[in-house]
Simulated assay, not measured.
Amino acid sequence: MKFVIITGMSGAGKSQAVKCMEDLGFYCVDNLPPILISKFVELCRQSQGDIDKVALVIDIRGGMFFDDLFASLDSLKSTGHQCEIMFLDASDESLIKRFKETRRKHPLSTDGGIGDGINKERQRLKELKEMATNIIDTTRLTPGQLKEELRNIYLEGNETDNLIIYVTSFGFKHGIPLDSDLVFDVRFLPNPYYIEELRDFTGKDKKIREFVMNSPISIEFSNKLYELTSFLIPHYIKEGKNQLVISIGCTGGKHRSVTIAHVLYYRLKEEGYRTILTHRDESLGERKKD
């Protein structure tokens, strides 16, 4: 089991970091008292392998319990678990600016002086920083750049595993899916609705897919759609996106959109992307069996 201790200066970006680690597949716990680490390890063992990567945010908010961290880390390492320390830091000027922007009091500031609280925290965290596996200075990092940095350090295996692509069909007359990232209108393709013997079937049926795809326009469009999404997906992954919703719509959401979504889904699956196919409006109304 792998453990990453997220710690560092208050205001340096630990809250943002733990969100990123969750996106990378880590089970995250914020502000866990160090004395409870051993008990938490036992709970993880009971998951029978469901939890194999853990990120724990432990910092000076723990107050008197924070001093138990070193003993708890020694105990964790003695059990054979892999343990790393990620220390987030930033310049004093940047930290002061962030505290002023959020109008929050520094946890070690007794008289309200942010600078004094920062100095005390640096002294208290000096030894822990020296033990750190990775030190990340967030002074000039945007949230997106911090996420990219964490991906570079902690991402294991195929980076596409962290992007889930949802390909969904829908009908414009029922509204565009609100969570769409990309929307494509296929109402210009041949419409089976006007063929009486095909009207009550859907794009899940082979006869409908054959009708729609028996057109040079449909073939050319599906190829161009695949080329476009194949171009965009690596850039979304680089940006740190973990969910992409591609919505394909026709008038009612039963024939053309279902067919094109079906074609795109299988092509993306063949490329190894984690892809989920849904048809929002396909089941509306009665449907014959093929």
Rank of each mutant, 00 (worst) to 15 (best):
M1Q: 12
K2H: 14
F3V: 06
I5K: 02
M9T: 02
S10I: 06
G11N: 05
G13S: 10
S15Q: 06
Q16Y: 03
A17P: 05
A17I: 10
M21F: 15
M21T: 09
E22F: 00
E22A: 04
F26C: 07
V29N: 05
D30V: 11
N31H: 06
L32K: 12
P33W: 11
I37K: 04
E42L: 12
L43R: 07
Q46H: 02
Q46C: 03
S47H: 10
I51G: 03
K53Q: 14
K53Y: 03
A55C: 04
D59F: 09
G62C: 15
G62A: 14
F65D: 06
F66S: 01
A71I: 09
S72L: 01
L73Y: 13
S75N: 15
L76G: 03
E84I: 05
I85H: 06
F87V: 00
F87I: 01
E93P: 01
I96V: 15
K97Y: 03
R98N: 07
R98P: 04
F99T: 11
F99K: 07
R104N: 12
R104L: 13
P107A: 05
L108P: 01
L108D: 06
S109R: 11
T110R: 10
D111Y: 12
G113P: 02
G115Q: 15
K120T: 12
E121H: 13
L128Q: 09
K129D: 01
K129Y: 12
E130I: 09
A132Q: 08
A132H: 02
A132L: 04
I136H: 11
I136N: 12
L141K: 13
L141W: 03
T142I: 11
P143Y: 10
P143W: 13
E148C: 11
E148N: 07
E149K: 15
L150C: 00
L150H: 06
R151I: 09
N152F: 02
Y154L: 05
G157M: 08
N158S: 10
N162R: 14
I165Y: 03
Y166T: 12
Y166E: 14
V167K: 02
T168G: 09
S169P: 04
F170W: 09
K173V: 14
K173H: 11
K173D: 05
H174D: 10
L178C: 10
D179K: 05
S180Y: 10
L182Q: 13
F184E: 01
F184T: 02
D185T: 13
D185N: 15
F188K: 12
F188I: 11
F188M: 13
P192N: 00
E197Q: 06
L198D: 02
R199V: 04
D200F: 14
F201H: 03
F201C: 00
F201T: 04
G203F: 12
D205S: 03
R209A: 05
R209N: 00
E210M: 07
M213S: 01
I219P: 01
E220D: 15
F221R: 13
L225R: 08
Y236T: 08
G240D: 09
N242G: 07
V245L: 08
I248E: 04
G249V: 08
C250K: 00
G252F: 14
R256M: 08
V258M: 02
I260T: 09
V263R: 02
V263M: 07
L264S: 04
R267N: 10
K269A: 07
E270R: 15
E271Q: 15
G272K: 02
Y273T: 09
L277K: 04
L277T: 08
L277P: 04
H279P: 03
H279F: 09
H279G: 11
R280G: 00
G285E: 06
R287G: 06
D290N: 07
